[in-house]
Amino acid sequence: MSEQTNDRGVLGGLLDRASGAVSQVAAAGALIVVFVVLSIVAPSFLTADNLFNLGSQTSVNAVMAVGVTLVIITGGIDLSVGSVAALSGVIGVMLMANYGFNPLLGILGGLVIGAVAGLINGLLVSVVGLPPFIATLGMLSVGRGLVLIVTGAVAVFGAPESFRLLGQGVINSIPIPIVLIVLVAVAGHLVLTRTRLGRYAYVMGSNMEAARLSGVPVKKHTTAVYVLSGALAGLGGMIAASRINSGQPNFGEGLELDVIAAVVIGGASLFGGRGTVLGSLIGAFLVAVIRNGAVQLDIGTFYQNVLIGVIIWLAVWWDRYQRRKLAGDAGG
C-alpha cells in the first residue's frame, strides 16, 4: 500500500510539473501572438522608443513579480506590494533630497523600507497567525496611509540627476532596468532551485502541515519569503521613482493586480506548490504588452483593468481545472 501511495505521489508531482510547463508555454504563446498582432494594428508599437519604454515599464512589475512568486509558491499572497513600492520610493527620494544621501544609499534605504514591510507581513503570518490575505491587505492600507502622511500627499522632488540612471540609464545600449530584470531573475531562480529556502517553499506550498511535521522551520522560511517580496517591491518602487526622478505618493495604486496577474498567468498556483521565475517574467511581459498596446490603440485604463481581471479569472480557473484533473489521474 505504501509503495502504491508513493507511486501516486511521484506521478502527481510529475503531472503537476508538466501542468506548470504547459501553462508557461501557453503564456509564452499568448505573448508572441499579442506582440505580433499589436505590431500589425498599432504602427507605433514596434518603434525603438516604444520598445525601450516597454522594457523600462515592465522592469517594475517583473522585479516585484519575482518576490511575489516566492510568496505564492508557499501558498501565501502579497497584496501590499503596490503600497510598499510607493512608500519605498518616496522615502528613498526623501533620503536623497532632504538628507543628502547619495543615490546608492537612497536606493538601499528604499530596499530596507520594503524589507521591513515584508518582515512585518511575514511575522503577522508566521508568528501571529493571520491569514496572508488579511496580513498583507492590512499592510496595503498601512503603507498607503504612511505614504500620504510622510509626503502630505505631495510629490517629492530634489533627488540628484544621477539617480535617473537606475530607471533611464543604459549599459552598451541595453537599458539598466532590463539588466536589473535579468539579475533579479537569475537570483530568484537560484534561490528557488539551489537553496534550502526554495526547496522548502515548494514543500510548504504543497502541504504546510506535512512540512511542519517533517521538521521544516516553517515560521522562519515563511517570514523570509515575505521579506524578499518586500525588498523587491522596494526595488521596484525605486526604479519607478528613478524614471521620473521623484517620489509620487499615488504610485502603485492597483499595481498588485498586475503583479499577481503576471505570476498566475506564468503558471504559478494560488493554492501553492507551483511556480517559476521564468513563468512570472513571461506573465509580466504579457501584462505589460497588453497595457502598452491598449494605450497605443487608445483603450482606456478602465477597460484595461477589466481585461486583466478577466485574465486572472481564466488563469485561476485553468489552475483549478488542472488540479482536479491531476488529482483524478494520480488517484487512478
Rank of each mutant, 00 (worst) to 15 (best):
L180G: 03
Q24K: 12
V287N: 00
F35S: 07
S162T: 10
V84S: 05
I311V: 14
I120R: 10
T47Q: 06
T195A: 10
V182E: 13
G267D: 08
F52G: 02
G55S: 03
S80I: 15
I77P: 01
F251E: 14
D319M: 03
V90K: 01
A115T: 09
L123S: 08
L235V: 14
V10G: 05
M1G: 03
F101I: 00
V116D: 09
G234F: 03
L235G: 08
N98I: 00
S162W: 06
G252W: 13
G331M: 14
F35W: 11
F45P: 01
S214A: 04
A327P: 00
A315G: 04
Q57P: 07
V63Y: 10
S23M: 09
E161K: 09
W317M: 03
R323H: 10
A268T: 15
I308A: 05
A86D: 13
V93N: 00
I73L: 15
R8M: 12
Q304D: 13
R199F: 15
P131Q: 09
V93H: 01
V295Y: 00
Q248A: 06
V34P: 01
L54W: 03
K220D: 14
G122M: 02
D7K: 10
G300S: 12
T301R: 12
V277E: 07
V93K: 00
L105R: 06
I265E: 01
S162R: 06
A135R: 14
L51S: 03
L46P: 04
L232V: 12
A117W: 11
F163E: 02
F163N: 03
L180P: 02
L257P: 05
Q304C: 14
A85R: 01
I149M: 15
V277L: 07
W318E: 02
N61L: 15
F45H: 04
S23C: 08
L235Q: 08
L228V: 02
N50Y: 05
S242D: 03
L166I: 13
Y226W: 04
M238S: 00
L255I: 05
P249T: 07
G309W: 15
L192H: 04
V184T: 13
R212D: 06
V216K: 06
R324L: 08
V263T: 09
P160C: 11
G236I: 14
S44P: 01
V63Q: 11
V203K: 02
G267N: 10
I171A: 09
A117H: 08
N102M: 12
S44W: 14
G100Y: 09
L140D: 11
T69C: 10
R144N: 05
L180E: 07
S206D: 09
V142R: 02
H221N: 11
Q304L: 15
M238V: 11
F285W: 14
I134K: 05
S173Q: 11
S229M: 03
E253K: 12
L190Y: 08
